[in-house]
Design a binder for these strands. Structure first.
Lengths: 251, 251
DNA sequence: GCGTATCGTGCAGTTGCGTGCAATGTCAAT
DNA sequence: ATTGACATTGCACGCAACTGCACGATACGC
């Protein structure tokens, strides 16, 4: 295994589990802890993670704690979320992805709205508890802690039973060439499965996601029917997407 | 668990409950009180909290709101929940029911515990977010808002794939003749399905549930292996159950 | 005022960390 | 084929961090 590959794996572990332990990694790779520590130090120097005694934690804003991430830039996220929530008409069936942005969408749905929401995120389900007229379908599976969504074979199977009007998809990268991408393979597969079951796929892309790419590809950019971006996003950033026939909605 | 993470968790506990108690934290983390006090001292030195005798309070004057304070004193429920949480051994697979009592059980599970928790309650899933070594399996289905649990055919099907060591069941009635019962038919069916997939069924019965009966029957009282009751429950109230060979555990 | 719980400090054992150095492997130029 | 520059890795050593225990001091409840 090449050193570069090893570092990639360390980063993906960090993203998946929200933490890595030096000793555990050394056993997993069959290398000395010295080598692992060297890797961690270098990754920390590049700003990819935060070094702590015993291992490492994710770098700055996206701290392992989902609750803390939720508190980041609530204004930005909720403007996109509010715009997305407006798209839902009474009686429709919509799929709500996991992630902090989609929790905001749930929060922005009118209390009087009568609709059906399908989600694989317990956080979204809890958020919808107080919406009396929204029927919630919870998709089960193995819970991926970092993003608080269920993933895996059971999740994919359950998704096959659904047919929805909208799928509100959260991503970490939208790029005309690289397509829609996210930081975890299992999550990418679930998103792909959801996209196949919805008439319209709406991608929620806050500023830093546009023209970015993450390790795992969900599908081509044209998988998205619409991309919701913030009002002040420059047209130059969205022209490539619009040229593919993807609708661009500004908040 | 890394030291840095532990401090993060302490701060989030502080934010959630409006207070932390050194002794409780030491038990939760499985560490000596010395270590916890050291953490608290360091966090206080960094200005993240205010040290007081017995524990710590938030640094900012903004104490937790009413809802959060209300959650502090569920002394009744948490005594039963704590006793139940003690029964879980590392490596086991346990099913956690919905309901407020089972959310308390999730909260009382040690942070260091490595186990698998199966639940059909998004609230329980969210509560377990901060337990780094607990694998959560979420059972999906149609969400029954009143109890915040998934129910229905999809739920029953998903349960069939599970085999667990324990099932911690919440009920609204335990009666030697009338059996175990609850207030909703769909919920009763789900509880019955869970009970069939666990080696031991542990019923959590706060005082008012004992010798009570609700409209929908889950099964005979002997479906329960053990019933956990509060310490001061009179023997006269549990004799009928004990006569059926059901274990009675007092907190 | 007194008993108990909690606190702070010093100490020791364990674990993790960083640096320097040597061994090995790779690659390119000679 | 040989040589030298370079990267990668493991090992040894000293140092720092973490943790638990013991002891005396302090605060709290009755």
């Amino acid at each position: 295994m090449l050193t570069t590959q090893r570092k990639q794996v360390i980063l993906s572990r960090l993203h998946r589990d929200g933490q890595v332990v030096a000793k555990a990694l050394s056993e997993e790779f069959g290398l000395s802890e010295d080598t692992i520590r060297r890797d961690l130090r270098e990754l920390a120097a590049e700003g990819h993670l935060q070094r702590v005694h015993g291992g490492a934690l994710p770098a700055s804003p996206a701290t392992g704690d989902f609750v803390q991430r939720q508190a980041i830039n609530p204004a930005d996220k909720s403007s996109i979320a509010r715009r997305a929530a407006w798209m839902v008409q009474p009686g429709q069936v919509v799929i709500l992805d996991g992630g902090t942005t989609c929790v905001c969408v749930a929060r922005e749905l009118p209390l009087s709205l009568a609709a059906t929401v399908v989600t694989h995120s317990p956080s979204v389900a809890v958020e919808l508890m107080n919406h009396p007229h929204i029927e919630v379908i919870l998709i089960g599976g193995r819970l991926f802690k970092h993003s608080m969504v269920s993933v895996g074979a059971a999740t994919i199977q359950a998704i096959a039973d659904i047919r929805a009007d909208f799928y509100f998809m959260g991503v970490t990268g939208v790029h005309a060439d690289a397509g829609l991408s996210t930081g975890d393979l299992e999550e990418a597969l679930v998103k792909r499965a959801f996209a196949a079951r919805a008439a319209e796929v709406v991608v929620l892309a806050s500023r830093e996601k546009i023209n970015a790419a993450s390790p795992f590809v969900i599908g081509p950019a044209t998988m998205a029917t619409t991309v919701v971006v913030e009002r002040d996003t420059p047209a130059s950033a969205t022209n490539d997407l619009a040229a593919l026939g993807i609708g661009i909605v500004r908040t």
